[in-house]
Design a binder for these strands. Structure first.
Length: 408
DNA sequence: AATGAGCGT
């Protein structure tokens, strides 16, 4: 027998060739949320109180043998398994409530999050069992859990997953906004964190930004135009210290939906011969982040564009200056910049850069000029590497040297 | 205020 498995001396239910059992006559239970130290023996003691147990296995990491925090308990009949769920679910073992479900090896239902609801503003005294009892009137619960901190204290929210969408819908309709232990709870569909982040807070805003105003447009004009969408708590046209309009402003609505309506219908409208831009006002930090991102993108575009249009020169005759370089290289294309590198004393370092406006010009220059005698020496001409590329290459080389030095 | 984690011999 496999290690870690307790085989109970009972006749074993043979299921070979039998169709996959449905949820409710399955004899196999998944027991999750186990403390890592929970053993088969502890589970046996508890589960055999319901009916004879066929087998129990705590699943463990193959190598470390550490408990994965879940186990399987098998009974002879579906009724027994069902009874175990009813009577033993949320029983604490080592102080931690276990969570029992019918074993369902196909993960698709679990992953889909279907019929799953989220409850918040729960009284801290409501535990898994109480939550389950509250919601079981709407249908069969597959899983139910109150979020807790490490000491087992309720965090005031939880989850209930039903087997049917309809049950979840009814639970939401009937319990949302109701009092549970004198606290008004929120009940809604469960939404994955990631999906919730994808829905930008962008749709909930009160403050509207307007630009491209005429210089003569005033706060009163803004109130006039925006006022038709709902009540305004403030309107402002930004101005220079001398009072001259900066041609943009902000209108703050009392209700988010009014703000949204105003944006929807005013953006791009022509008013006083000016096409207004009307949008959600960004926070300063948001705006800055956007500008930073744009700047970064522009920089990347520029690098991309000039990629391959830059030359790196070395072994350059000391008598060459920027001007002479330009003369030498302009035959191959349109030079956008040209530089001889010098030390702080102004002495030529014998290297330099020539930038063209297109990569073809640069490669022509390499082909024609590399190795050519210029002044006293043969000139080295190659496409310039970007700083990062060069750094990466140097790093590879340094590593190589280190490896070479290491004794066998 | 808060939107998990979870399936073997």
């Amino acid at each position: 027998m496999a290690q870690g498995q307790v085989q109970i001396p009972q006749q074993i239910a043979h299921q070979t060739g039998v169709a996959v059992p449905t949820q409710f006559n399955s004899t196999s239970l998944y027991v999750g949320d186990l403390d890592v130290n929970v053993s088969e023996a502890q589970l046996y003691e508890i589960f055999s109180q319901i009916a004879p147990v066929v087998s129990i296995r705590v699943c463990r990491d193959l190598i470390s043998k550490r408990s994965l925090g879940y186990a399987y308990v098998n009974y002879n009949s579906g009724q027994e398994a069902n009874r175990a769920i009813e009577l033993l679910n949320y029983t604490p073992i080592n102080g931690k409530p276990i969570r029992i479900m019918f074993s369902q090896r196909d993960p698709s239902l679990r992953k889909s999050g279907a019929a799953n609801i989220f409850i918040k503003n729960l009284d801290k005294n409501i535990d898994n069992k109480a939550l389950s009892d509250t919601f079981s009137v709407f249908g069969t619960i597959l899983s139910c859990k109150v979020a807790t901190d490490s000491s087992g204290q309720s965090k005031g929210y939880g989850y209930v997953q039903f087997d049917q969408d309809e049950s979840a819908q009814n639970a939401i309709n009937q319990v949302n906004g109701m009092l549970l232990n004198d606290k008004q709870v929120y009940v809604g569909p469960f939404v994955r964190r990631q999906e919730r982040d994808n829905v930008p807070a962008a749709s909930k805003f009160n403050n509207v930004f307007v630009k491209n105003l005429s210089e003569t447009t005033t706060e009163d004009d803004l109130r006039q135009v925006f006022g038709s969408f709902g009540s305004i708590s403030s309107a402002v046209v930004m101005r220079d210290p001398d009072g001259k309009s900066k041609c943009f402003g902000f209108v703050n609505f009392e209700h988010t939906d009014d703000a949204a309506k105003a944006v929807e219908s005013l953006n791009g409208r022509k008013i006083d011969e000016k096409e207004w831009y009307v949008g959600r006002a960004q926070k300063k930090s948001e705006r800055e982040a956007e500008l930073r991102a744009k700047f970064e993108q522009d920089r990347k575009d520029k690098i991309e564009k000039y990629q391959g249009a830059n030359l790196y020169l070395k072994n350059l005759d000391d008598t060459f200056d920027d001007e002479k370089l330009k003369e030498l290289f302009q035959a191959f294309g349109n030079i956008t910049s040209c530089k001889v590198m010098r030390d702080p004393q102004g002495q030529s370092r014998g290297s330099g850069f020539v930038a063209y406006s297109a990569p073809e010009e640069a490669s022509r220059a390499v082909a024609e000029m590399n190795g050519r005698m210029v002044g006293s020496k043969p000139l080295y001409v190659a496409l310039a590497q970007r700083k990062e590329e060069r750094r990466a290459r140097l790093q590879v080389f340094q590593n190589f040297l280190l490896i070479c030095k290491k004794p066998a």
